[in-house]
Amino acid sequence: MTSGADLGRPQAQTVGSDEDVVRVRQLVRTVAVAVRLSLVDQTKVVTAASELARNTLVYGGGGTVEVIAVDNGRRAGIQIVFADSGPGIADLDLALTDGYTTGGGLGLGLSGARRLVDEFDIQTAPGQGTRITITKWSR
């Protein structure tokens, strides 16, 4: 398990294959447990990370995921950044709509992941890649 010492430091995981998505899930769970998220919140953030890491792999052509424990003075939390240098997203509103997909999935990845976390920030433009930051705070 992660020791307290390296909690404040971001832990990175490259996403280049299926197995890497599994590793992202495990990394996120370890940190989520360490910042004492409730079981349901752990499950939510790991699920969101799984969706977004798969997006990074499938749509972004691979990239990196960074996980870090954060603290806003009142509550502890976990922050995860998914970055790829893929084609980017042209119509963000459309991409965030339930059921919209270009990859043959269920179209719940982006929109669903957003519902599972407390903060969701996305920066993307065609040809510029995509960078998504999510945060989940402990209650």
Binding site: V40, Q42, T43, K44, D98, L106, G112, R115, L116
Partner: peptide, 14 residues
């Protein structure tokens, strides 16, 4: 299915 998984699936919209 675990309760936490079920709750998450509902939130996810699945």
């Amino acid at each position: 299915m675990r309760p936490a998984v079920a709750i998450t699936l509902v939130e996810l919209g699945l």
